[in-house]
Simulated scan of single mutants.
Amino acid sequence: MLSLHGVSVGYGDAPAVLTDISVTVRPGRVLALTGSSGAGKTTLLHAMAGLLRPRDGSVTVDGKPLRDRDHAVEHRIVLIPQDNGLAPILTAAENLQVALTADGATPPEARQQTAATLDLLGLCGQANQLVEELSGGQQQRTAVARGLALRGDVLLADEVTSELDAGNRQRILNLLHDEARRGAAVVFATHDPEVAAACEAELHLLEGRAEIVRG
């Protein structure tokens, strides 16, 4: 279980972006992380993912302090970043296969899981295209596919529907709920109120603070 206790985070010597944030990310649920642009959604996800060390308070996983990103990966905390984080000179399929192989899958397992997950995202036809040849929406769906393929215990998704049409937004929302039903804890940063309303709980960021709106 991933928990934040009185966490304050910021960058360099600048004032803290977020102050005194406490929340527990619960298995089997989708938590919507909302707030205006610049409210700190990405900053909070980075703290949850072990990419940003808190100035105050603590981030714990299974009751122990989260040390860094490597420690988060060991505890199967998967981050789907807003900028997709894909290698542009690899194909969509290769991006998934590299991640799965690094996670311990055999090459045949990685190929099988890649094909199945790309199919879930409607990307079978783009499997062998270079990422740099894909549209923004296709790249976003490829990044989601990679995150889903890793089957994390905690899945952090940062604005992963921002470039998608209504049909694909709903497809991804359904898949995130499928992950929760599998037992994962899901945090979904979104500026879309309809998407947020479809989640079991909502944490809203405003002026550096956080408020549980639902759940």
Rank of each mutant, 00 (worst) to 15 (best):
C124S: 14
L130T: 08
T106S: 11
A115T: 15
C124L: 12
A116T: 15
L100W: 04
E109W: 01
G104Q: 04
N128R: 13
Q97K: 13
Q113L: 05
A105Q: 04
A93V: 00
L118F: 02
N128V: 01
T106M: 00
Q112D: 14
L121C: 14
G122D: 12
A102C: 05
V131Y: 06
A99P: 01
A110L: 05
L118Y: 05
D103N: 06
N95I: 01
G122M: 12
A116W: 14
A99M: 02
T91L: 05
P107I: 09
G104P: 00
N128S: 11
A116M: 15
R111H: 12
A127L: 06
E94P: 11
T106D: 00
L120G: 06
L121T: 07
A127D: 09
T101D: 06
T106C: 00
E94K: 03
C124V: 09
Q129Y: 05
T106N: 02
A105H: 07
P107F: 05
A110M: 02
L120M: 12
T114F: 03
Q126P: 02
L100N: 04
L100R: 06
A93D: 04
Q129G: 06
G104S: 01
L100A: 08
L118A: 04
A93K: 07
D103A: 15
A127G: 08
A102R: 11
L123V: 13
A102V: 02
A93C: 06
Q97S: 12
A102E: 07
T117H: 11
G122A: 12
Q97D: 13
T114G: 11
A99L: 01
A127T: 06
L120T: 07
A115G: 14
Q126H: 12
N95Y: 00
Q112I: 11
G125A: 11
C124I: 08
A102F: 05
T101I: 08
N95M: 02
P108K: 00
Q113G: 00
D119I: 04
T106F: 02
A105I: 01
T106E: 01
L130V: 05
Q113T: 11
Q126L: 13
G125V: 08
T91D: 09
T117A: 07
A93S: 14
L118P: 09
A127Q: 14
D103L: 05
